[in-house]
């Protein structure tokens, strides 16, 4: 056995839990930071912050999923 002990009775649950929550995490990240960027764009009359916010939100959401389920 490796350093990570297998627990067969909860393996399936943990794994599907992680996989099924990935899309909602990514959408939530894009909504939060893309929304902030969109508001900044409207406020400053620019068009750069919305794409930046989307990419930032996706990366942060991916990090959140990875930290929560990936270890």
């Amino acid at each position: 056995m490796s350093q990570q002990e297998r627990r067969p009775e909860t393996d399936g649950r943990d794994f599907s839990d992680a996989m099924w929550s990935v899309p909602s995490y990514l959408l939530a990240g894009m909504a939060v930071y893309g929304g902030l960027g969109w508001l900044l764009d409207r406020w400053l009359d620019m068009s750069a912050f919305f794409p930046i916010g989307i990419v930032l939100g996706v990366s942060l959401a991916g990090y959140a999923v990875y930290r929560r389920h990936g270890r």
Partner: peptide
């Protein structure tokens, strides 16, 4: 606030966690 993260990261991730669990997950 899942345990085991540095403090400033919580500030960035908490809104994502909340939105994803409370609004996006039932929607999808």
């Amino acid at each position: 606030f899942p345990p085991g993260l540095p403090k400033p990261i919580y500030f960035l991730l908490a809104p994502i966690e909340f939105l994803s669990n409370m609004i996006i997950a039932p929607f999808t």
